[in-house]
Write a protein that binds this DNA or RNA. Sequence first.
DNA 1: TGTAATCTTGACCAAGCGGTCAATTTTTGA
DNA 2: TCAAAAATTGACCGCTTGGTCAAGATTACA
Lengths: 213, 213
Amino acid sequence: MDTARASQTKRRTRIQQEKEEAILEAALEVFSKHGFRGSTIDQIAEEAGMSKPNLLYYFPAKEAVHRVLIDRILDTWLDPLRELDAAGDPLPEIQSYIRRKLEMARDYPRESRLFANEILQGAPRISEELNNLKKLVDEKAAVINTWIKAGKLAKVDPYHMIFAIWATTQHYADFDVQVRAVLGKERSGDGRFEDAARFLDQLFVHGLKPDAG
Amino acid sequence: MDTARASQTKRRTRIQQEKEEAILEAALEVFSKHGFRGSTIDQIAEEAGMSKPNLLYYFPAKEAVHRVLIDRILDTWLDPLRELDAAGDPLPEIQSYIRRKLEMARDYPRESRLFANEILQGAPRISEELNNLKKLVDEKAAVINTWIKAGKLAKVDPYHMIFAIWATTQHYADFDVQVRAVLGKERSGDGRFEDAARFLDQLFVHGLKPDAG
DNA sequence: TGTAATCTTGACCAAGCGGTCAATTTTTGA
DNA sequence: TCAAAAATTGACCGCTTGGTCAAGATTACA
């Protein structure tokens, strides 16, 4: 118990700190590319520049590495939603939420894909964490409902609205190969995120019907 | 060559026809649940009610089964987009495209997840098929652009519009566990698809800004 | 009915995998 | 400086996996 707490809250040595970080970084790279079952400890160890037994000196098992990653990711992944401010102006709040989510898809695609992989497989390793997720969404859905009641937003189901935001933004990380294949080489540069941001702004505020003026 | 063609175009025996179909159905079930690497031939054979060597009597390798599935899926998956009619009314055309895609997510979630799995892993087994995908999207993007030029649709990037439709609809199949976890048990019934349809209709036509009247 | 073609599977193999262990090297700190 | 603690790894183990093979069961058809 004592050692367990110590190793959780405070790394003991400099080497331990560095190596655990290197392993997690390598595991993120490998897991996000091949999924949990498709990744091997040897691959991760090689990516981290160490031997397999050495990796297992820091983490008791392959799954332990994965769990730490998932926990971290889910946490940072929800930060943008946490920032949704009930006191702010509804439409701008939602627009900036979308922008932040899109920036995360751009800057942390590996994290997005690792998480997507987990959900796609039925989330066998994170049924618990999904509860926290629900709690946060319930909370923010209530906020959105007050906005709607105040006539500051169209009457929509806040849950499906959040799903739509998640889906449209994470799509650019999770389905990156498809997006690039469809856009073609010329349009696969960084500009695609700005185009996406522009489109999503229009979609979520005004929809697709022609501008009435 | 001769035998190869014969087995592709016309099944030789009744048993062959039935067993190959049973294998593909079983493989769809298993692959969509565990991904390619996470699935074993034994699992698929058991699901299909036969022995592993028997399965390998009909398909030369695990990957061959997967390839046939992917080919079929990609084809039926694009049918709704093919139906997008340049001669129709823009908004209703798009609305019914969204509805059809949502119905596919509801009725064929395994197919959606299998495909998502493949793309997520970087589409190692289908770089070729992505070309056909691009061709079709280019074609339909041109149609959408004529609609925009005619003033019948807001000025948006047709590619990102199509991405948004794919993302929001397939989300209900690919991220099903997450959707159910967030909605809670009470709202995880079939009704969620009707709610989603209603929301997406509002979103894609009018956006989220309060109804002006 | 009989026999050739088709179908089926238990037993097996080699490779890959997660994880262990004992032995060695490196680092730490008095 | 030097011994204890921490870090590192080659060799290894048992299990799973994709795929083969030979031998037997079933089916098709003349």
